[in-house]
Amino acid sequence: MDPSEVEFLAEKEVVKIIPNFSLDKIYLIGGDLGPFNPGLPVDVPVWLALNLKQRQKCRILPPEWMDVDKLEDVREMERKEESFTPPPSPYYMELTKLLLNHASDNIPKADEIRTLVKDIWDTRIAKLRLSADSFISQQEAHAKLDNLTLMEINTTRSFLLDSLNCMFKLRSNMQPGSGTGKALDY
């Protein structure tokens, strides 16, 4: 899956905006939005929030977890624990990227948040690499991946799955009989 497709899914997340225009309720296929009144916060999906922001029609309120104190706590937890801690949001990386790239003027301490999220991401990816390594060296057949976000899974997906498939083919070719008839996709 392409990272942009993960981002596409993240854009469905709901974020609060403060519009500077007024508009009736919009009846979208995927649910109703609005009504929009100047100065009154309203929930919209991220894709619409970013579009309105680009047209300078609204101010985006950062999600609750996008806060320096909270993220510092998450970072400490993530460094302390050996397993994965619950992520601040299932799309924390994508949302940080999208919101900070397009609406950094609406988010207090944007630079600090960017660094914190990157730290959290790096710690988690390091853990992910470590667990992938032990998964392969112990030749496990099942792993539980709670608290991993889609973007994190996606960064390791093609490499991990391809290596596992490759190892499976090598192994089934070594045991004569078991591998025959299985068409191998070279």
Binding site: L145, N165, A183, D185
Partner: peptide
Amino acid sequence: PEPCLDSFVF
């Protein structure tokens, strides 16, 4: 080739 049903999935 046949689909490889032994692939790992998330």
